[in-house]
Amino acid sequence: MFKILHAEFIAPGIKRFVIEAPRIARKYQPGQFIILRLYEQGERIPLTIEKSDSQKGTINLVVQSIGKTTNLLNSLETGDYILDIVGPLGKPSEIEKFGTVVVMGGGVGTAMAYPTAAALKKAGNRVISIVGARNKELVIEEQEMREVSDALMITTDDGTYADKGFVTDKLRQLIENGTRIDLVLAVGPIPMMRAVADMTRKEKIRTIVSLNPIMIDGTGMCGGCRVLVDGKSEFACVDGPEFDAHRIDFAVLVQRNSMYRTAEQKSMEDFQRDHEVLLAKIRESEAECALQGAGK
């Protein structure tokens, strides 16, 4: 059981958790993720770590309510427990001095791009960050990103905050202005990462994306998260999650992520109907564990 030391919504449907996980906090490097399971009947889902504090033994997760598990997770509060968390998984981001790096975060992806942006800045890069969201309320990590960026640009789809448009509009402007870009890192929804890849491919700018295919174990055992890289299968959990965007077959990624759409909808309906029951189930197993002296 992993204790939630702090939980708060940072935007509608997006919650930040500070979780006690000393082993993971100690080994975490930017770009890595964890897999968690909330209760005995729960599924395992991967989530990127936002930051860690090895002294305090904590990791942060930023979670957007999308399906049953993320909605349920976002119903948990400070003081609740998460049944299982394993990590840190995946390869860390490649951090070195590249020169000028454009870090792009779309939606909740910004929270995943942040730690790598911070590490790139620390490594001596000039970091230009582009943060995008659907609307003003969904712009997250603005302050954090500003602290680690030499320049920060923000877009909203509806223009309710900063500049109206998409993150790719800003990237195009940078390219058209003749800004020298040595590396682009893009983390966000698949269509965004794909659009970035298409844009930088023409310009021959090396581009890294962080992929989020369906996973189970996260250690290379099941192969469910395989993605096509230059036509060959690689496992996002151990070979990634970051990949060279120009070598990724995004169409296959979209196709494989749609595999359980029907079941996911059913699960979401169950969540909406039985929300209270499910939450009670989680709290029950917390109590059980407390009785056993926190077990492990």
Partner: peptide, 25 residues
């Protein structure tokens, strides 16, 4: 892969969906 197929069914109880969350084709 057989590993994924069996892991979904055995470890994750996908055969008991929707009582368990992990789905299966």
């Amino acid at each position: 892969s057989a590993n994924e197929f069996l892991t979904r069914i055995n470890l994750m109880h996908a055969y008991e969906f929707p009582n368990y969350d992990e789905p299966m084709v």
